[in-house]
Amino acid sequence: MSTEPAKLLEEEGFSYLTCIQCGTCTGSCPSGRHTSLNTRRIVLSARRNRDVYHDKDLWMCTTCYQCQERCPRGIRIVDGILTLRAESVHMGLMLPDHRKVAGLMIDKGHAVPINDDGRAKRKELGMDELPETVHKHPQALDQVKKLLELTGFMQLVTDEGTENS
């Protein structure tokens, strides 16, 4: 069961109740010019406990923080959106491309792992083909995998939940 948006935000300490719907956030949003994202409405919907978790607009935010910087009431809008997203993911709602990236993380320890092209570029620059990251250190990768298992992340990514995205 998901937590109601208003309750969730309150628990996380977001002062969204004092939003005056002035639109500074929306006017400052680079994404909102090209997408249906309206940050002001997300805050309002959350406040009114509407189902924002199924709202795809949540994922249009580039987390540039411009809205949060300019909010005259000091509401941590982006941090709030991240919290709403996490709840949505825990309901099993994850965009397919994000699920792929999460899978890479589980397998390789990198969201953007090395590929043939990357190896070739490194070689060309006189560098080792693999960087000194988990790519080169298998025990370290094991640590990452174990960590992801302990936090339940593997489960979260593989289990598509009750609701499919």
Partner: peptide, 24 residues
Amino acid sequence: LEGASCCPAPGVFRSFDKITWLAL
């Protein structure tokens, strides 16, 4: 920094699960 992983990317992993993001 031997054996470091993805940071992990804030927009994606922080959006998925705060504890996973924080732990990694």
